[in-house]
């Protein structure tokens, strides 16, 4: 992919947003490629972590947010562990995920956000997560009704599903915490 290296590209608003959200200085990256060398999902994605960082450096917003590697990242942290400059690449990817929320470029983004929201809704309402609440919420809201349904008999047979929600005592305080954070982050 060819892009012109202009001063404007290097100081894009997109790059500043990513740097602010992740707390990382992306000028530190000199494209050595160690993150991609260790990345377990690199063979399955179009854009390697190294290229993804380069895209952000050059302000290529659409390409970066559209890339499948944002959603195939398992957050394992191999890249973080190996980066010679100590860049927290997982937080850079977290920042990119946050920026996709309103855009939903590709299906991967929609599914992941549905999963995050189903998970956090469960935590917000009960203080703890139950697998049945999570899977139910995810399957209904994502439209993928049959996700992991095949596995349900195994889970039931081995008594692995926590069915009843375990509500914590101070759930009211927890809900105020969620609300306060939403206000601070202006969602």
């Amino acid at each position: 992919m060819k892009t012109d290296l202009t001063d404007k590209a290097l100081h894009s608003e997109f790059r500043q947003k990513v740097e602010a959200l992740s707390g990382q200085n992306l000028s530190d990256c000199y494209q050595c490629g160690k993150c991609s060398g260790g990345c377990p999902v690199e063979p399955f994605v179009e854009v390697s972590p190294t290229r993804l960082i380069r895209m952000v450096q050059l302000g290529m917003e659409e390409e970066a947010l559209n890339s499948d590697s944002v959603w195939h990242c398992a957050g394992c942290g191999t890249c973080n562990g190996r980066c010679p400059m100590g860049i927290d690449i997982v937080r850079v990817k977290d920042a990119l995920r946050k920026l996709t929320k309103k855009i939903h470029y590709k299906r991967g983004s929609l599914e992941a956000w549905t999963f995050y929201e189903a998970f956090l809704d469960c935590v917000r309402n009960f203080g703890r997560l139950t697998e049945i609440g999570l899977m139910g919420g995810y399957n209904i809201n994502s439209g993928w009704l049959m996700t992991n349904v095949k596995k349900a008999p195994w889970y039931l047979m081995r008594n692995k599903l926590g069915v009843s929600p375990h509500t914590i005592k101070r759930v009211d305080r927890l809900q105020r915490v969620f609300k306060r954070i939403e206000e601070i982050e202006g969602q």
Binding site: G75, D94, R97, K98, K101, A112, F115, Y116, E117, F119, L120, V123, G127, R128, L129, I168, K169, R170, L174, I181, E185
Partner: peptide
């Protein structure tokens, strides 16, 4: 009265 740590969904969103 411990609560969920938030895991990936929390650090990926906020």
């Amino acid at each position: 009265d411990w609560v969920c740590c938030g895991a990936t969904p929390a650090h990926a969103t906020s």
